[in-house]
Nucleic acid binder design. Structure first.
Lengths: 213, 213
DNA sequence: AGCTTATCCTTACGGCGTAAGGTCAGTCAA
DNA sequence: TTGACTGACCTTACGCCGTAAGGATAAGCT
């Protein structure tokens, strides 16, 4: 994982990894059946690093904190972001899912609403972080990159794209939420409205039911 | 792209692609500097397939239709999903961005709200589709896969995960939105509330301003 | 006729995942 | 004490990969 963090997952080859461990490439195959297994386990360790809410925390705060924790962890291990939704579900992922799903269910959401809410949240976390890690290195190179992008951009054809990049350059105001948090609040607000009597998206089906187990 | 659609982007090697074209691998380097360029262009073509809203369509319907179109296109070219947010911004992506940003701006959103809304939308589209393509093949194998997953799952430790998978198996009710549309509506609802007088997430800063250009 | 240019080819290198089949020290029952 | 077993590791080799370097060929233009 140190290797992946430093040079990306492409740098994790059986030969290089073995070299770091002072052994030969083929020796790794006594601990792992295929390279894919190795990577799957690495990804699961990343997910395992996400701090989970203690049982009993009110759902909105718990979900908010967990989403932010997940975002932080994924930024620390950017190589894992495109893999996290496609890899085998193991211990770490199960624990993560269970915690979020239990939080929603205990918070009063129906099985269906919980199901949908979980995916909406996960999509935001992974999708947003995927975008972030796709463009970002540090703030400075990002800014200079954005400037040179703006210079080459035909403004007459793409005025709104230009404005969009300028928004990036402007940064955010003192009380404005992070870009990540903006989308997160949108989703949490939407979920909160599902619990209100009039309901939100499809109030008929997604309202409260008795929790399982 | 036919090769990538059929066998995934890993099957697109310079030798195999050249073979399909009846030429040698190295000949491709007269049309493309690096393999990365080739893949970037393929991804941009995928984005170019997304139907964009005609100028003047009311923002909410326009965004909804575009998001669904993007989702469909990405499902058709699943190999492109993890790449789309990290690849070079070219013609196709610029047109896509311009259309969405213009829709929001014309719809009355401030530069900042437009900026945030764009990313929230994009994160959902890509994040959700990444999850979908990570698990899904066809409905039937998915179902049998889910059943065998449930059998191996220790229910006492992960009761909510079990319920979650059962929700998948149950499928959705007749009037229930798609999972993709559920998250989409959450985001569109949230954006709509930004336009109301009282504002939504951070009403102070994100309210309307004069559009650019 | 000669030059330019676009297109394609050949050969070669170092690196990849991994199949197949060792070696060798420690463990433990008889 | 011995001998089979086991787990950790190594060696060699195969067929892939991207691409560097340096032609070949044929069409079009002056």
């Amino acid at each position: 994982m140190a290797l992946a963090d430093a040079e990306g997952v492409a740098a994790v080859t059986m030969r290089r990894l073995a070299g770091r461990l002072g052994i030969e490439a083929m020796s790794l195959y006594h601990h792992v059946a295929r390279k894919e297994d190795l990577v799957d386990r690495m990804v699961d360790r990343v997910v395992g690093e996400i701090d989970l809410p203690r049982a009993g925390t009110p759902w909105r705060g718990a979900l908010r904190a967990t989403a932010i924790a997940a975002h932080d962890v994924l930024l620390r291990h950017a190589w894992a972001v495109p893999l996290v939704l496609g890899s085998q579900v193991r211990e770490g992922r199960l624990r993560y899912m269970e915690a979020i799903l239990a939080t929603l269910r205990t918070g009063g959401f129906s099985p269906s609403a919980t199901h949908h809410g979980y995916h909406a949240l996960d999509s935001h976390i992974v999708g947003f972080t995927l975008w972030e890690t796709g463009i970002a290195l540090d703030e400075a190179t990002l800014a200079s990159q954005a400037v040179s992008f703006l210079e080459g951009l035909p403004r007459d054809r793409f005025p709104h794209v230009a404005e969009h990049v300028e928004q990036h350059l402007a940064g955010r105001g003192p009380d404005e939420p992070t870009e990540f948090e903006f989308g997160l609040e949108l989703i949490l607000d939407g979920l909160a409205r599902l619990l209100e009597p009039e309901g939100g998206v499809d109030g008929q089906q997604l309202r409260r039911n008795a929790p399982p187990g």
